[in-house]
Amino acid sequence: MSTSATPQKLASVTPVRSGAFGLRHYLICLKGVVLRECLRFLHQRERFISSLVRPLVWLFIFAAGFRQVLGVSIIPPYKTYVLYEVYITPGLCGMILLFSGMQSSLSMVYDREMGNMRTLLVSPFPRWFLLVSKMLAGVAVSIAQVYAFLIVAWFWGVKAPPLGYLFVLPALFLSGMMLCALGMLLSSMIKQLENFAGIMNFVIFPGYFASPALYPLWRIQEASPLLYKICLVNPFTYAVELIRFAFYGQVDWVSLGVVAGCTLLFLAAAIIAYDPSRGLMTRKQDTGGNA
């Protein structure tokens, strides 16, 4: 440690106070949070590979096996019979977003346990902005994973209309926001990293299987009316349908409304949960939990 630094060298740490943050400062903060998330993702190659391998296994193995078993009739947005691989691709995109959203939840719990979360929460920017930035960062990483998957799927012969790859972007963004907001809300409820397995059992698997990701809703209705009703109250159902229609340049308005509404709801709940004067973090204080 230097003990002989000159005053000139230390002049940069002269206390300076200035006015409120402007738009430029907010953008710098947002960029910093997004960049950090991207760098973390790039440094964790295993995370990238597993996020890519998971849907590819479903596409290459599961879909190939089930294409003969499960017939998909002509249902909107499809105008012809489609291969089962084509049918489940939007669901697999949703799966990537779902896992990624929950991964961001895991990352927040980890950050909280390791103390990294504190550096974010003691930033002078409003906490809602910090959480939204964190969510946007998570969504940016998720969307990159989805496009990596779509490229591999394209080479496998599973192709959407060319413009569909562009049209699907807003749907991926909104669905990603909803799932990241849900992940953030869940992270505020989890006290320890070990409890994350519960997320797998109670959120990811039921959310994924009780949705039209793998089979159309009409087939589910035929098989089990109860499961059909569960699918209808599952927000992930609407995320998958929003993505599916977007691939064909169409908007499923019900799905759009549900996904947008759930995004706002989950986000508001997460912001309240991370507010130290309200919400679940306050309860953590009461039990001596880490911030």
Binding site: Y26, I28, C29, G32, V33, L35, T119, L120, S123, F125
Partner: peptide
Amino acid sequence: SYHASLHGIGG
């Protein structure tokens, strides 16, 4: 750099 951005300091 991450910390700087959390205080609106960049570039």
